[in-house]
């Protein structure tokens, strides 16, 4: 069962997995408005990040429900809502 997390906690978890998948961004100063695509993540990288975030949060939903966000902040908004914080 997914645990309820604050927006900031979800944001921190997303950034951790972005850095895991894209180690070259280790020292990047992230903004919620950053786009993963523009940071150099291809579709495989983006799917990996989403998978790892879902796993960390024990979020068990179809992956297709996490499509649409255009930046990291929007992805956090969506995941935060899916965790029951809507």
């Amino acid at each position: 069962m997914a645990e309820v997390k604050s927006w900031d906690e979800v944001y921190a978890i997303v950034l951790k997995h972005v850095r895991d998948v894209l180690p070259e961004l280790q020292s990047h100063a992230f903004q919620p408005s950053d786009s993963l695509r523009e940071l150099g993540a291809n579709s495989i990288d983006r799917a990996d990040i989403v998978m790892e975030v879902m796993e960390t949060l024990s979020l068990d939903i179809p992956r297709v429900e996490l499509l649409g966000p255009r930046c990291i902040g929007e992805l956090v908004d969506l995941i935060h809502a899916k965790l029951g914080n809507a």
Partner: peptide, 26 residues
């Protein structure tokens, strides 16, 4: 039913690579 990639016209593919990848994984 999902609209990930398709051939709605005779000689052209249309697709959303992120959606297709997520659907493939699901």
């Amino acid at each position: 039913e999902v609209m990930d990639t398709c051939r709605p016209v005779p000689d052209g593919d249309v697709g959303d690579s992120d959606l297709s990848l997520m659907s493939y994984l699901d």
